[in-house]
Design a protein around this nucleic acid. Structure first.
Lengths: 76, 76
DNA sequence: GTGTGACTTTGAGTCCGTC
DNA sequence: AGACGGACTCAAAGTCACA
């Protein structure tokens, strides 16, 4: 599934961009969202396919709507 | 995790609402989104926590942006 | 402060069926 | 057409040590 990896990389890039715009480190975000530091890294690099709940935890920690994480991403 | 179940139920209710507004059966949606028939049912009843890719497949099949699936849902 | 490989446990997602 | 169950596979969740 090539398309899947591309999407996850875009999703991760969006998350990283938002995180950096808030001047947060991966460690900071991990704390706020109650996720593990390394797991945040995996998501940002598109190595993981996070679930709805995980996405909501991240968007809540970043104080943005979930839709912001998916900005510019379409399945096809 | 009580909060988690509530969120998944809301997410599922949103999906069901959109699906019915398009006059699709769960089977129709399953076909279009390339997901299993029973799995769509589980998601709509809030029994499953779909991944980012799955959410994109559903939103694509329903021809709505992902944000529509999360309408009215906040983590806390 | 982040990347990565390895690891265990849990749950996503499929497939069979019945009501 | 949909709810629900059991059994199954493989990936997500979550953590760690080390670069």
């Amino acid at each position: 599934m090539e398309i899947k990896n591309i999407i996850l990389q875009e999703l991760g890039a969006n998350i990283r961009e938002i995180r950096e715009s808030k001047d947060l480190s991966q460690e900071n975000l991990a704390e706020i969202s109650n996720l593990h530091r390394t797991y945040i890294g995996l998501i940002e690099r598109g190595k993981k396919n996070p679930t709805a709940i995980t996405l909501l935890r991240i968007s809540s920690a970043l104080e943005v709507p979930v839709s912001k994480l998916f900005e510019g991403i379409a399945y096809e």
